[in-house]
């Protein structure tokens, strides 16, 4: 069947592509390897399909992974939370296995309908600097599990996120899971997101993760920001300020100022760069306070 203009009027259709529904990860990887960078994996499709309709993306082949069994697991295992490639945002929001910044971010991903299809792993691989999950992953020190023809490897999220819409996967690799550390001691986390309306990208998002030592001081800290730099950015100076100190409003305000200094926002329809920096400072403080309260509680 050929869809012509008469039949479809002014409908937005993606450019033509070949389609295969892979039955296994191995089959998906082989199909991807054969097609190279003109081939894309299709998971939730909530970013890819809109880009294809606008012809920002024109892959020659889609490898649909939705029918592969075993990729939808979400569970705590060996000190980390395992999130499989087909775990939807809604599954995370509803899961009893999640806590901290992950649990805090899940209900704020896009809107309920998108959360029913979109996946965490897809969002992570997409590397949109306005995507929320990569900030959560940077703050918690997560790893991306990639599978290629010669097996699996774990990639630190800091190495995985390379640039604007660019990850460090090889052409024949697929993200099969994300592993988020679950600390054994006292810890807490939070994601603070400012959005103009449900479903809009974050104007500003801040993920915070704290771990406390036995004496109540901060033993590990993660802070990362959404929509205020060309990629999701870790606020490393803020993190360094926090470690070794006791949680306090003054400390969190200082960390907020350091995060704001590390942000590189732009003036756009969502607000001025100057104002977004102020939001980063305030939201970093709030996210850290919520994380500390959780860790202490």
């Amino acid at each position: 069947m050929c869809a012509d203009r008469d039949e479809w009027g002014s409908r937005m259709l993606p450019a033509q592509f070949d389609y295969i529904a892979a039955a296994s990860v191995e089959e998906a990887i082989a199909a991807k390897a054969e097609g190279g960078d003109e081939t894309r994996f299709l998971a939730g499709g909530q970013s890819l399909l809109p880009m294809m309709k606008l012809r920002f993306a024109t892959p020659s082949k889609l490898v649909d992974i939705n029918r592969i069994a075993g990729l939808d697991a979400i569970r705590s295992h060996n000190g980390h939370l395992h999130v499989g490639a087909l775990v939807r945002h809604a599954d995370i929001a509803a899961s009893g296995a999640v806590s901290g910044a992950v649990a805090s971010a899940a209900p704020w991903i896009s809107d309920p309908l998108v959360r029913n299809l979109g996946t965490l792993c897809g969002s992570v691989a997409h590397c949109d600097p306005e995507g929320d999950w990569n900030s959560v992953l940077l703050a918690t020190g997560a790893e991306v599990v990639a599978q290629g023809p010669s097996g699996r490897r774990a990639i630190d999220i800091g190495d995985f996120v390379q640039d604007f819409f660019t990850n460090s996967l090889a052409e024949d690799e697929m993200v099969v899971a994300v592993h988020i550390p679950v600390p054994s001691g006292r810890s807490g986390g939070s994601y603070q997101k400012l959005e103009r309306k449900v479903g809009d990208y974050a104007t500003v998002g801040v993920a915070a993760h704290l771990e406390l030592a036995a004496d109540g001081t901060i033993s590990a800290a993660g802070v990362a920001m959404t929509s205020v730099a060309p990629i999701n950015r870790k606020a490393t100076e803020a993190e360094a300020l926090l470690v070794g100190n006791a949680p306090s409003a003054e400390l969190f305000a200082e960390a907020g100022a350091a995060a704001a200094a590390a942000a590189d926002p732009r003036d756009d329809v969502r607000g001025s760069a100057r104002w977004k920096r102020q939001v980063v400072a305030a939201f970093t403080g709030r996210a850290l306070a919520a994380a500390a309260e959780q860790a202490q509680g």
Binding site: Y19, G45, L49, P50, D64, D111, L113, V114, N116, L117
Partner: peptide, 21 residues
């Protein structure tokens, strides 16, 4: 969201899903 349908009982946007899916 006006294109919402239920797929296996779950509401999704049918403009952002392929028929083959």
């Amino acid at each position: 969201g006006v294109c919402t349908v239920l797929v296996d009982g779950t509401p999704v946007k049918s403009c952002t899903m392929l028929a083959v899916q």
